[in-house]
Write a protein that binds this DNA or RNA. Structure first.
Lengths: 204, 204
DNA sequence: ACTCTCATTGAACGTGTGTTCAATGTCAAC
DNA sequence: GTTGACATTGAACACACGTTCAATGAGAGT
């Protein structure tokens, strides 16, 4: 029984939330128009009335996820307080890593999109921007390190250091998702500290 | 025109090679039974005669890839020679990273399988084993480091250190594939060296 | 009341897929 | 030469998916 029900923005949001529920449960492989429509309690035709195509739904869902669920890096903007810059950076890495491990479904979904982005330019651009923002969260601490030890980090930019931190976390995520029993991210973090910090500085 | 042509093992290998060609070109999303059959110059029926299903083909292709194209870690078994253990490990990481960057298609395909493995237990096990072997390549150097600095790496196992190395490389791979213009793995490697090595030890 | 707009439906279409299977040709054995 | 085993074919089937569209009904404006 057709009829008016909700203005466009609300309907779109309902559908996007349903799409996220489906994707979190069945991943992108199980994200079909019919499945989302059923989950949202609407018809499949309505879905393509609000989103021009499945492609559009995928892009808008990623957009929605990046805006709603991936946390911003604002927590990391705190001043270094009294900690050494290297320990500051490690603390940021540790917090990000812990946060990532708590939302495994979301990270798996993100990797689905990552793979999709390999062939899909629009999604690729979205994921790129998200990872750039992610890396930016490390930049203040990274910059403090380089400023504190200019001769040691000659030729190394804050972006390079942030990229290495991001690589470490992403690698930890891939290994944790694939092999949660054998790979322990907490031990990896402790190992990184032992690698980077001089022995005397290891307090924690 | 049907008829005998080749014994089973040869036909299977022909088909697997064709499957790899298709997958390297069009990824797992483009790997259909018909596409592989056409590439191999056989009928689709024959493909399912030699492989029980598409699932079987996928698993056997991954098996074949891991046996034929992913290089073993034997190159890394060389003795430490006169280098310091930390530099030895970094050299192994650097070589592995360089090797990975040279075979982008293969790595992308591997990530396709990684995502597939999230839902497919058999593939998951295969990829797990492959990554374990990958990590093992770092263990000799990792062990040498821990043996050389027992107090600094108290509570850290060689496996932990190897896992961190693997995480770094995998993270570099994901960033390079997604954003080759902005992420420079060579700079990341130099950054890692600056992070880990004491200033005086940076020779290269 | 009447009309007009448009959100909404669900059946239908086309396509691509994995899979099946009866028919067929080739080879080896006897 | 005949037989039997079997690799090989390609048409056909069933299914799921994205997409289209004529029909429908609810609300807004007058």
């Amino acid at each position: 029984m057709p009829g008016h029900k909700a203005p466009e923005a609300i309907r779109r949001d309902e559908i996007l939330r349903a799409a996220y529920r489906v994707a979190a449960r069945d991943r992108l492989g199980g994200l079909t128009i019919r499945a989302v429509a059923t989950e949202a309690g609407v018809s499949s035709g309505l879905l393509l009335f609000h989103f021009e195509s499945k492609d559009g739904l995928l892009v808008d869902l990623l957009d929605w996820m990046l805006a709603h669920t991936i946390v911003a890096g604002e927590l990391h903007r705190r001043p270094p307080s009294d900690a050494q810059p290297v320990q500051w950076l490690l603390a940021v890495v540790e917090r990000d890593l812990a946060h990532l491990l708590k939302q495994r479904e979301r990270v798996e979904l993100f990797y689905d999109y990552w793979v999709l982005g390999t062939r899909h330019p629009v999604i690729r651009r979205l994921i790129r921007r998200a990872l750039h923002r992610y890396r930016d969260a490390f930049r203040p601490a990274a910059h403090a390190i380089i400023a504190a030890y200019p001769e040691r980090y000659r030729g190394v930019s804050a972006d390079d250091l942030a990229g290495v931190c991001a690589a470490f976390i992403e690698g930890c995520a891939t290994q944790t998702i694939l092999d949660p029993t054998r790979f322990d991210a907490v031990r990896a973090m402790a190992t990184l500290q032992a690698l980077v910090l001089p022995p005397a500085a290891v307090v924690s």
